[in-house]
Design a protein around this nucleic acid. Sequence first.
DNA 1: AAAACATTTGATCATTTGTTCAGATATAAT
DNA 2: ATTATATCTGAACAAATGATCAAATGTTTT
Lengths: 118, 118
Amino acid sequence: MSEEFIRCEVNCVHEDAVREVRRVMLGEDVAASLAELFKALGDPTRVKILFALLTRELCVCDLAAVVGMSESAVSHQLRLLRAQKLVKFRREGKNVYYSLDDSHIEELFARGLEHVTE
Amino acid sequence: MSEEFIRCEVNCVHEDAVREVRRVMLGEDVAASLAELFKALGDPTRVKILFALLTRELCVCDLAAVVGMSESAVSHQLRLLRAQKLVKFRREGKNVYYSLDDSHIEELFARGLEHVTE
DNA sequence: AAAACATTTGATCATTTGTTCAGATATAAT
DNA sequence: ATTATATCTGAACAAATGATCAAATGTTTT
């Protein structure tokens, strides 16, 4: 064992602390998923899209106008947000309406804004 | 005005909806800051570092052992987290101890995990 | 069926990101 | 002072990202 403590010979690493933290550490997969989620929130365009959808359902064309970006660009971002199950959509005639698919976004934004504006 | 509605001639964009959403939309700078924050949380290594610090203060060497990455790599990431005011540090002898500098991280992780594990 | 419109998609390309490596700093111990 | 240890830094490079453009879908209208 202690394969991982080679680096700092014997007393650089506080073995007890490391062991304790390791015990409660997130699994590799969970950490990856969590990072994926935050990464999806980590772009100004997507932040604006999600924030807009916080107010109301909107079609791609509206979203493009709101965030000031091409429909193509918005569509690409929406695909990513869909993959992360952050938004859902419904088709109505020629338009596709997007809305939030996650009840936590408002809370996440609120906490994020608290941090940013202090 | 209506500079921005050229694209969809007259009735693709729901002008009223767009106007309403535009009114409450985040400023360019706030959206950027918020995105920066989430981007900082959007990497597995950084997620693990922050999660570890949720348990207790740790030195760089410990963190490296916990997340299974070189001290250099961890140090680079810590710099980024420092820039976002997510962690703070204190020097004690040869070691530098890092701890969380944001009370919202726990909440952000909790909400994030709820989304991921459902 | 053809034309018009909203949305999606794939390819491309410049930019950003995250790790590694080698070397610099800073503090402590001899 | 010299050596050892912990941390930081800059350069380099592969990989991921995000916008743009052209073209493909899918839907409605005529």
